[in-house]
Write a protein that binds this DNA or RNA. Structure first.
Length: 661
DNA sequence: GCGATCAGCT
DNA sequence: CACAGCTGATCGC
């Protein structure tokens, strides 16, 4: 849940992404995107009543957000109160006090946020100054810098405040792979799986309602296989998406949901209940896209974790991510991080007393967690560690060149509008306040053009260097788990497109009834809906944004926002069915050799398959206390049995007293 | 019956 | 932790 309460200091009469409590008195509403945690109160009867009594009250959002919102019956009553604003089109809005008739004009500009279809940031300009509300956003390095509407007269606009979600402004997310990297990895994994046989299917475990569409469309494009979804109506005016998704269950790529879909997958069934016509059990892997994953572990050796999850007793490891201490008791709040400075490091305290305490309690945070990111000119070049210098070099290659001065509670930064450093000594411009979502999120990174973060952390983030994500994402081999059942080896056959005849549409007792499965839905593409960019593309699409290679054929909507959040994929890959003797025999040898190379020094690692030339297969998850560790001999026996296709019986884990069953 | 809140889960 | 949800229980209207 976003902790932003809906209102900004500068424009307290408008509400953004919150529609309850005090926000009921707003003169205008703004919705950045259609995720539930940004829609609190939006369907409340009290708000509906207020709408009906008002002549002026409107909700402003992007055309795509409007489309999505009105698709839902629960929000249909908004129909006459929504005004869609095209992305990248500064629009004047009058805020009218209906009691007194007082009027205030503000200019609002929607900027592409790259978070999910229709998602935008709001730039407000008016009597209260220029403020930017980012909402949830995901933008590649340099992408904001290219937004012309954040510039004026060749310079960045004087942004007084940035209202920012700092969820991923944390050293733990010291590097998140790009959408392209994640997409490449997923494509290869899916390719390696679905080409094995028509019975090999993929389930995309996508929790959020929107934000994975780029994944669906790229998968569909690459393999000419539409992705199965429960319903498509929200996309009926979005042909770029609609073309790649289907309600026809007879496909090898699924993103369908069911209230108990995890149970379905554990039982080797797809949430939609589809089965192969000839009764052959499907072989399902689940892929769980996750950005949080990249913050949950500091030592990431492999993004792809294959097999074993169901078969080994759970007591052998703990899957809990590393915990994080939380300061205070608290209700997370948006609080000012500090002043965004043009060129100096001096901090101007917010006059509002509510924030005075913010800058006095940085001592609460262990020194190690503090980030002191001084401007380059202030850094002692010789004293910086190699990692720091390396990061500096990386940053220098980017458009953004200016560092931000960061500590745990506030940051100061410099702004540059050009590529040189000529404004080092520039006078202070109007300061900007950056609001952060949680007190523990210390880093603010480049929401304003031409800002970058140069950090040296005392924590672990800087110790291991930046991961090379492309290495993690290479799917070289597949480890397949086993079950007690003996299965007939499958014919390996090329699969280049879906095989509709393969699957049975008849609903057996266990299958799921999906309400909206009409054949017309999967084929009908409306041509009426040119509602702006589905992914909030900038006014101009930078050349070479997508690099080279296999993405050159991508369509524009996906070439502009393919670079940050949801696409950070953790392939929590689970294999949920029978062991394929031939394949596994070959692959298990690989695993075995990897495990052998590890030696005794790393016994608390889960065996995983590694990519490319990497030989280490560490995946460091702490052991559950008092658990037994499988000895190498046991593993050898296990591997050999698996390799030869024998049945393996796993002992039930011991009950740990006091623990959950 | 509905909405709000909370706990629990993924 | 928290991403973006969901379900179920409880309480008040």
């Amino acid at each position: 849940m976003s902790s932003f309460q809906g209102r900004m200091h500068e424009y307290p009469s408008i509400s953004i992404d919150r529609f309850d409590r005090d926000n009921l008195l707003a003169k205008a509403y703004f919705l950045s995107h259609c995720h539930k945690d940004h829609m609190k109160g939006l369907r409340a009867p009290v708000l509906k009543r207020r709408l009906e009594c008002s002549l002026k009250l409107k909700l402003y959002c992007s055309p795509v957000t409007k489309e999505i919102l009105l698709t839902s019956k629960k929000y249909k009553f908004w129909e006459n109160y929504i005004i869609a604003i095209e992305v990248g089109t500064p629009t004047q809005i009058s805020l009218v006090d209906e009691a007194t008739g007082e009027k205030e004009d503000i200019l609002v500009t929607l900027l592409p946020a790259g978070h999910c279809p229709g998602s935008v940031m709001f730039l407000f300009e008016g009597g209260g100054g220029t403020v930017l509300y980012t909402g949830d956003f995901r933008l590649a390095k340099g992408e904001v810098a290219r937004m012309e509407l954040l510039h004026s007269g060749g310079r960045i606009k004087d942004i007084q405040s940035v209202y920012l979600d700092t969820t991923f402004c944390d050293p733990r997310f010291y590097q998140i792979p790009s959408r392209v990297e994640c997409l490449n990895g997923i494509l290869e994994l899916v390719r390696s799986w679905i080409t094995l046989s028509p019975y090999h299917v993929v389930w995309l475990n996508c929790k959020a309602a929107y934000g994975y569409e780029y994944l669906f469309t790229n998968l569909s494009e690459e393999f000419s296989i539409q992705v199965h979804l429960n319903k498509l109506d929200m996309f009926h005016n979005m042909p770029e998406i609609l073309h790649h998704v289907t309600t026809d269950r007879s496909t090898q790529i699924h993103a369908c949901r069911h209230p108990k879909d995890e149970d379905f997958i554990r039982g080797n069934r797809l949430p939609c209940g589809i089965t192969a016509k000839d009764g052959t059990p499907l072989r399902i892997i689940s892929i769980k896209p996750s950005t949080m994953w990249f913050g949950e572990r500091t030592n990431k050796s492999s993004v792809i974790v294959r097999g074993w999850w169901n078969e080994l007793p759970r007591k052998w490891w703990s899957l809990k991510p590393l915990g994080r201490k939380c300061l205070g008791d608290g209700e997370p709040m948006y609080k000012p991080l500090g002043k965004l400075k043009r060129s100096r490091n001096c901090f101007i305290k917010e006059q509002d007393g509510d924030y005075d305490d913010l800058f006095d309690d940085s001592h609460l945070i262990p020194l190690k967690q503090r980030l002191q990111c001084a401007p380059r000119s202030q850094l002692d070049e010789e004293n910086r560690d190699p990692e720091q210098q390396r990061e500096q070099q990386v940053d220098e290659e980017s458009v953004s060149k200016r560092p931000i001065y960061v500590n745990t509670e506030f940051l100061e930064c410099e702004e540059s509008n050009d590529d040189d450093d000529n404004d080092e000594d520039e006078e202070d411009k109007e300061a900007a306040t950056v609001y952060q979502k949680r007190e523990l999120n210390p880093i603010w990174k480049g929401s304003v053009p031409d800002l970058s973060v140069h950090c040296s952390s005392g924590g672990k983030a800087g110790e291991t260097g930046s991961p090379q994500w492309d290495m993690f994402f290479k799917a070289e081999s597949v480890l397949i788990s086993e079950t007690e059942e003996d299965s007939e080896p499958l014919r390996e056959q090329e699969v280049c497109s879906q095989s509709p005849k393969l699957f049975s549409d008849s609903e057996d007792g266990d299958s799921v009834h999906l309400p909206s499965q009409t054949s017309s839905q999967s084929t009908h593409i409306s041509e009426q809906g040119s509602q702006g960019s589905l992914f909030g593309e900038p006014n101009h699409i930078p050349e070479n944004r997508m690099g080279s290679g296999k993405f050159t054929k991508e369509k524009p909507p996906f070439s502009t926002a393919l670079d940050v959040e949801k696409s950070n994929i953790n392939w929590d890959v689970q294999q949920h069915h029978q062991f394929h003797p031939d394949l596994s025999a070959a692959l298990l040898n690989t695993d075995h050799s990897n495990s052998s190379q590890k030696g005794e020094g790393q016994q608390n690692s889960i065996p995983v398959f590694k990519s490319g030339s990497q030989t280490s297969s560490d995946f460091e998850i702490p052991l559950t206390p008092d658990s037994d560790l499988p000895q190498p001999e046991e593993l050898n026996i296990l591997y050999n049995k698996l390799a030869s296709g024998k049945t393996i019986t796993i002992k039930a884990p011991k009950q740990i007293s006091g623990g959950k069953s």
